[in-house]
Amino acid sequence: MGSRTKLTGRRLLRSQKLARAIAVAFAASFMATAPTSEGHACGYDSPQTASQGFLNWLYPDSLYVVGAISREVAAGRLPVANFDQTGPDLFGHRFKLTATALEQFGDMLRAASPGPAALPSVSLVVVEPMLWTRFDQGPDGLRTTVHVPGALPGDLVLVSGEAVITEIAARRLTFGQAVERGVVRLYGTAPQIAQFLLSYSDVGASDSAVETSQKPVFSLASAAAGSPHFASMQSHPVGIAPAELGCTPDHTEISFHEGERQ
């Protein structure tokens, strides 16, 4: 119990710092365009748009999570509450919620971790605010650092959205389900991805006991079977031919989702 209290206290402290950091991050995204004198701005570029756009290239097709989240919201499988904003979010309320969910997600990863060495360094970005969080091995177990500049080399990268993490944190969605539905995408080496899925697919299950017990094997086959519509949509030939443009990166090695493109 004692350690639990300590943890909560520390989390609170961290949350305050966080809130400040996030307020700044958010203000930055609202600042949008720095007025330019001469040049070629198309006006709408903001730091947020640019980093979202970059993400789609650095982690090829990572913005597919945006489409997947849209589809899940429309299908009623992700709550609309997160998006039902009819007024401005002046006090960063939404960001506090997101940050709390990220902390909670970190705690769940820690609880599900099979052993101290089993967690690779993981960076997670929620795409709406482009907020990065890093999970790595600290002196006393897994450490969650919300609001880092980005992923470090060698990190396993998870791309997702606010509503998704919130749902996992609230134990209404498992990480494995989120991956199946395309609302989380993973980027790293195949063993990194496999290892992570093996260990953490059940994070978010309503029975917390599952997190420490035997884990069923997650497989691509089950992903397809569990969501036929999704599977058919994702396997649609997109027809982009990077080589024809001579400019898009080849991503054979790094994307877990590579088969979706042709």
């Binding site: 789609n56 097709d61 997109v238 982009i240 031919a241 024809e244």
Partner: peptide, 25 residues
């Protein structure tokens, strides 16, 4: 820079009435 990954070939294909997958999947 804003994340568009479709090039001219996909653009023409789409305009011709074919289905494509957008840059957000």
């Amino acid at each position: 820079a804003a994340g568009a990954r479709l090039g001219p070939r996909e653009a023409y294909k789409f305009a011709k009435g074919e289905e494509v997958i957008s840059s957000t999947g």
